[in-house]
Nucleic acid binder design. Structure first.
Length: 198
DNA sequence: CAAACGATTTTCT
DNA sequence: GAAAATCGTTTGG
């Protein structure tokens, strides 16, 4: 089934980040169908989170997307060259979001390889927030896209990730957030957990 | 209006 | 392991 508003409006962004593991991210971009299992996420707890763009209730043209109601895409450019894909959560006015940092290729891998200029499926195809966006065809053009539409959405295909297969730890690349960078808001599927490729 | 910088990736040593 | 690539957003004058 396709996840709907009920899922995205969850008030606990950290719990939602955990629940996204094992869900399937689908894109229909440029007429190409691609899908992958979400394997790594990070929660960004809006106004109270130093690592969030919306810390302290900051509202700018860019961060405005995060104040939308849960179930929209927040995509922005990082380091001048990487498009990072986030899922906006909670109700309108509350800037919570989950950064998707990694997926495991499922469908449309040929398109992903082409977009990434690669020949064969390797571990690095979609293993970072920038590379997965590139492989899936997601760019800043998709900022504010509804995740309950046809272009980008997330499905539950019944894949369950047990707690013992999940690694929880501090977030990456947010050292500037001092103590908040240490919060255990990062979730990833253990690399040796073989639901997928064994 | 100018300057600094970042929720990163790739490449080279 | 280190460093470069690269540009929109944000911040300060």
């Amino acid at each position: 089934m396709v996840l709907d508003e009920t899922f995205y409006r969850n008030k606990d962004v950290v719990a939602l980040a955990r629940q996204l593991l094992g869900k399937v991210l689908v894109t229909n971009i440029e007429g190409k169908y691609c899908a992958g299992i979400i394997s790594e996420t990070e929660a960004y707890e809006g106004e109270t989170d130093k690592a969030s763009h919306a810390f302290g209730g900051r509202r700018t043209k860019r961060t405005e997307t995060m104040y939308m109601s849960g179930g929209h895409a927040y995509v922005y450019l990082c380091y001048g060259m990487h498009h990072l894909f986030n899922v906006v959560t909670n109700d309108e006015g509350i800037p919570h979001a989950v950064l998707v940092r990694g997926i495991l290729p499922l469908d449309g891998t040929e398109f992903m390889l082409k977009r990434r200029n690669k020949n064969k499926l390797d571990k690095g195809l979609c293993s970072g927030p920038g590379t997965l966006s590139k492989a899936m065809g997601i760019s800043v053009l998709h900022d504010r896209t509804s995740l309950t539409g046809q272009v980008i959405y997330i499905e539950d295909r019944g894949i369950k990730i047990p707690d013992e297969a999940v690694v929880v730890g501090p977030r990456i690349g947010v050292d500037y957030a001092a103590d908040h960078a240490l919060f255990p808001y990062r979730f990833l599927i253990r690399s040796d957990y073989g639901v997928l490729f064994g």
